[in-house]
C-alpha cells in the first residue's frame, strides 16, 4: 500500500469544514480519480496529502510512514517523492521550459548550486528525457508563457517527472484546457501510470474522462466520501447523487 488516508478532517480558519473524515487507501500503480462538485473538498484533499495544507486531524500514511506531523527536512524528503500538477500549470512564466522542468529537481540539488543555476550534464539530460516523455523536447529553450495551455501543462508534468515521483497528484489538470487538449494531456498521465508505474491521484470534472482513465474512483460531496469503486459502476443514479438532481452528463471525447 502506497498511501493511506484515515479519518482526515480539515477546518479552515474561516470555519469552512472542507473535509469531514475522509478515509481511503491507494495501492501502488493505481490511477485513482477523485470526482465531485467544486467546493466538495477535492483540492483540499490532494493538498493535505503532500502537506501543502495542514490537515486539522486524521492520518496520512505514505509508503508505510506516518507523514501527518513531520516537518522540515523530513517533510521535504517526502515532498520530493510526490509530484504535483495544478489546474493553472503554475510555471514560472518568464523562464525557459528547460529551467522550469529543472526546478522539479530543486529538492535534491544543493541550495548554492541551484541559485547559480549551473547544473551538471546529468540534470540537463534528465530534463530533456522528461520533456521527451511528454513529447515537447523541441520547445526546451522557449519561454514558458509562449506555449499554449496544453503545452504548458505538459511542461508542468515534465517538471513533476523530474522528481521521479512515487506518487503523482493532479489537481484538475485539464479544467482550464479545451476538450481535445484535455484528452491528449490525460493520455500523458496514462502513459506515466502504465509505462513508469507511477501511482496517480487525479481530480477530474468530466465523467467521460474518468471512465476512460481511472482504475478506481472516489466521489466527494461536502467533504465526505460518498462513493468508492470502479468507474464503470457510476450509473445515472450515482451521478445524480454526486452532482445533484439538476446535473446532466456532458460528453467529452
Amino acid at each position: 500500500m502506497l498511501l493511506k488516508v484515515q479519518n482526515l478532517h480539515k477546518i479552515y480558519k474561516s470555519g469552512t469544514h472542507a473535509l469531514k473524515g475522509v478515509s481511503f487507501e491507494v495501492e501502488e500503480g493505481e490511477f485513482l480519480v477523485v470526482i465531485g462538485l467544486s467546493g466538495s473538498g477535492k483540492s483540499t484533499l490532494l493538498r493535505c496529502i503532500n502537506r501543502l495544507i495542514e490537515p486539522t486531524s486524521g492520518l496520512v500514511e505514505f509508503n508505510g510512514k506516518d507523514i501527518t506531523h513531520i516537518n522540515g527536512e523530513e517533510l521535504r524528503k517526502v515532498k520530493m517523492q510526490i509530484g504535483m500538477v495544478f489546474q493553472q500549470f503554475n510555471l514560472i512564466k518568464r523562464k525557459s521550459v528547460l529551467s522550469n522542468v529543472i526546478s522539479g529537481k530543486l529538492g535534491s540539488l544543493k541550495t548554492f548550486e541551484s541559485i547559480l543555476e549551473k547544473y551538471n550534464d546529468k540534470v540537463y539530460n534528465e530534463a530533456y528525457r522528461c520533456l521527451e516523455t511528454v513529447g515537447i523536447s523541441d520547445k526546451a529553450k522557449v519561454r514558458a508563457d509562449a506555449l499554449s495551455g496544453g503545452q504548458q501543462q505538459r511542461v508542468a508534468i515534465a517538471r513533476s517527472l523530474m522528481q521521479n515521483p512515487k506518487l503523482l497528484l493532479a489537481d484538475e489538470p485539464v479544467a482550464s484546457l479545451d476538450p481535445a487538449t484535455s484528452n491528449s494531456v490525460m493520455q500523458y498521465f496514462e502513459k506515466i501510470n502504465k509505462e513508469l508505474g507511477t501511482t496517480v491521484i487525479c481530480n477530474l470534472h468530466f465523467l467521460s474522462l474518468v471512465r476512460r482513465y481511472a482504475t478506481r474512483v472516489i466521489a466527494l460531496r461536502a467533504g465526505e466520501v460518498i462513493y468508492e469503486g470502479s468507474p464503470r459502476d457510476i450509473d445515472e443514479n450515482w451521478f445524480k447523487t454526486i452532482y445533484g438532481e439538476e446535473a446532466e452528463e456532458v460528453e467529452i471525447r
Binding site: 515532498k79 509530484g83 504535483m84 495544478f86 526546478s103 530543486l106 529538492g107 513533476s160 522528481q163
Partner: peptide, 10 residues
C-alpha cells in the same frame, strides 16, 4: 510558489 514548494525545495 506552491508548485515549487511541492517539489520539496527549501
Amino acid at each position: 510558489m506552491e508548485a515549487i514548494s511541492a517539489t520539496g525545495a527549501n
